[in-house]
Simulated scan of single mutants.
Amino acid sequence: MVHLNNKSPNIPEVLRRLAAQMNSQVIDNRLNIPEAYGQGFCTGYNWDSHLRMLILNYSLKRDMLIENADIDISGKMLLFKLQQVFPPPGSTPDLSSHFTPPSFLIATRKVATDVFLPVHTHTGTINIEIDTAYLSDRLKSSGHSRIIQRLLENEEPLIFEEMIFPELLPVIKEVTDHQHSDPFRSYFMQLKAEELVCRLLSVLENRTAAELQRLHQSDIQIIYQIRHQLTLHLDQPPNLSELAINAGMSVSKLKSLFRQIFGKPIYAYYNTLRIQEAARLLRARRLSVSEVGYALGFSNLSHFSRLFEQHIGLKPKKYAMQQ
């Protein structure tokens, strides 16, 4: 049975507003993007006041700006955002395409967010927000790491990001592919939203971090600009002194804040980016192993092969043959 549920309290307000702007309808918690505006879909759920989720997979013909009435003004929610989980429709990896690896971030609402939700030409994310009091009650333990404790306190700006690990992919696929009819779809999605929250927190629980520094919004923006610079120049090893000058901070502060947010030292993160890009290019089967290695700045292909195997578990040639 099809349910026209534009006015259901289970639907995030931002999804209703997007549907209204496109002269469309939310059907069974899903908005299919009209052809006149682009392609793809948005799916959203509100579960009481403690948990909500948006699944966004679309490409638009033009950018739009939708007021996000669901923004957490009270600051009681934590944001879990899985990014780049849907490839752009019709995209084929090559050396000319900009690489941004699939990742997830966890942030307190003390990290400034805009009250307007920008709708970009392509968006492929899963956004989950969960109330910290509800989450603390679910966890019911005082033995968590200092990172988890500080997140649950939700009293300061904190943001952590990690690349998506292979064990997470089946859960993401279940969320994005699930087609059961109501009432089971909503219940299933709630269970999967909480499973994703649990799995993502377990990654942070295993981080070995020094004392967390207090973050300012300007620091966060600068560190993300530095990360963006790394993705643009994967064939060039980062120069910490130059990066620090560009960031307007000392090398020690840059290294400390980068590791706090991304969980790795800058050079280790850079190498992970290179290997993830190498795997992406090899999956496309348009370039040879040597072409991929040289394009990513490896002058020694034996070193490339060893590093690839350390990260992926297979040598690049064998990995390419299995795709």
Rank of each mutant, 00 (worst) to 15 (best):
I128E: 06
L168R: 00
P238L: 06
H120P: 01
E309V: 01
I261T: 04
M77H: 11
Y267D: 08
L95C: 02
H216Q: 12
D48L: 06
T113I: 08
E156K: 09
L282W: 12
H180M: 09
F165K: 13
S136D: 13
L60V: 07
V203L: 03
E205P: 03
P101L: 05
S145W: 03
S305V: 08
D114L: 11
S136G: 14
D94N: 15
F258I: 09
A193D: 06
R274F: 04
K61D: 06
N246A: 08
S186E: 12
R30P: 01
V26E: 10
A20T: 05
M77F: 14
H120F: 09
Q25I: 04
R52K: 10
L301S: 11
F188T: 13
M22H: 12
V251N: 05
Y319S: 04
D63S: 15
F258D: 02
F80S: 07
E195Y: 01
E161L: 04
T272W: 11
Q260H: 06
L230M: 07
N68W: 06
T272E: 15
Q213M: 13
S136I: 02
V292Q: 06
Q213W: 08
L151Q: 02
K315C: 02
C42E: 07
I220A: 05
T108S: 12
R259P: 00
P93A: 15
P88F: 07
E291H: 13
I223K: 05
S96M: 01
E211S: 13
I73W: 09
K110M: 10
D48W: 05
V26R: 12
G297V: 03
S302K: 14
Q21A: 12
L82Y: 10
H311S: 11
L254F: 10
L296W: 10
Q190C: 07
S256T: 15
R150C: 07
A210E: 14
A36L: 13
S299G: 15
L204H: 02
M189H: 05
